[in-house]
Amino acid sequence: MKNEIFNNQVKVVYSFAELINTAFEGTQNAICWERNLEGDFKEIVSNLKLKDNITEVFAEDLLALELSEKGSKARKIILDDLQSLTDFGASPSLNLLKNYDRDDEFDFISTDVYSYHVDRSPIGTDTFLCTYYGASSDILPNDQAILKILIPEIREKLKELHDGSEEDFESFLKENYFDLHFEPKPDSQPINLGLKNLWRLAVDHPQQKVLPCIHRAPIENDGEYRLLLIC
């Protein structure tokens, strides 16, 4: 069953050109450039210095590292990915992650990246991401999730929180990003994005012809940082 879900939601490609030129269609809203890469990405993580919970790593930071042959291979892969995405017109960011901030303001709904959510943009764009080291993200088929604001008990609590007119309620949900978050159904089967694969995920924008891809950040492994490219 999992393979069927994977085939229905995910298109697998084998080059960067295919990744950026393949169109989303039907129920497919995620494209995976599947890669089996050599190189020691753990060595890179071990040599980088975490300044905050999320530290952006620049090309010059990577180039300044003294690495073994395997570490150098990993560095070249990352630099090539950053350059390919930049040449494509994207703005990639390489992050060394301890953890993201948690949204614990309300006990009945969360809007942090650990919650299943979709990305939204006012212009046509896609989300690209690759986890080189550490825990990797999950995506979820759209028919295996329910929008949190449609769950009656959550909706009622949001109405109490809003304490305004019915006409303004939908705007309130959108302004606070409540309308981007999903609850997985009981029998849902998330797809883990794995390590070193470069992914392109559909975003909610005016020209989008497919449903946006539902995804979430993983809970980090104890004592382990993540190395993530995202844009």
Rank of each mutant, 00 (worst) to 15 (best):
N8V: 00
N8I: 00
Q9P: 00
Q9W: 02
V10Q: 04
K11Q: 15
K11H: 13
K11D: 13
V12Q: 06
V13F: 08
S15P: 13
F16I: 06
A17D: 15
A17R: 15
A17F: 06
E18H: 10
E18L: 10
E18S: 13
L19D: 04
L19A: 10
L19R: 09
N21Y: 05
A23Q: 11
E25N: 14
G26Q: 08
G26W: 01
G26V: 01
G26M: 07
Q28A: 12
Q28K: 15
N29I: 12
N29P: 12
A30G: 09
A30P: 14
A30I: 11
A30D: 07
A30E: 08
C32L: 12
W33R: 07
W33I: 00
E34C: 10
E34H: 12
E34Y: 08
R35H: 06
N36C: 06
N36E: 13
L37I: 08
L37P: 09
E38F: 12
G39N: 10
D40C: 11
D40I: 10
D40W: 11
D40A: 14
F41T: 11
F41P: 06
K42N: 08
K42E: 14
E43M: 05
E43H: 02
E43F: 04
I44A: 04
I44M: 04
S46R: 02
N47Q: 12
N47L: 09
N47S: 13
N47F: 02
L48K: 03
L50A: 13
L50Q: 14
L50S: 12
D52Q: 13
I54Q: 13
I54F: 04
T55P: 05
E56F: 12
E56A: 06
E56H: 10
V57Y: 05
V57I: 15
F58L: 13
A59E: 15
A59N: 11
E60I: 10
E60F: 11
D61Q: 07
L62V: 04
L63I: 05
L65R: 01
E66L: 00
E66R: 07
L67I: 00
S68G: 03
S68Y: 03
S68I: 03
S68L: 02
E69K: 10
E69P: 00
E69F: 08
G71V: 00
A74V: 03
R75I: 00
R75F: 00
K76H: 07
I77N: 14
I77A: 02
I78Q: 01
I78S: 00
D80C: 05
D80Y: 04
D81M: 03
D81C: 01
L82W: 03
Q83S: 08
L85P: 02
T86A: 08
F88I: 07
F88P: 00
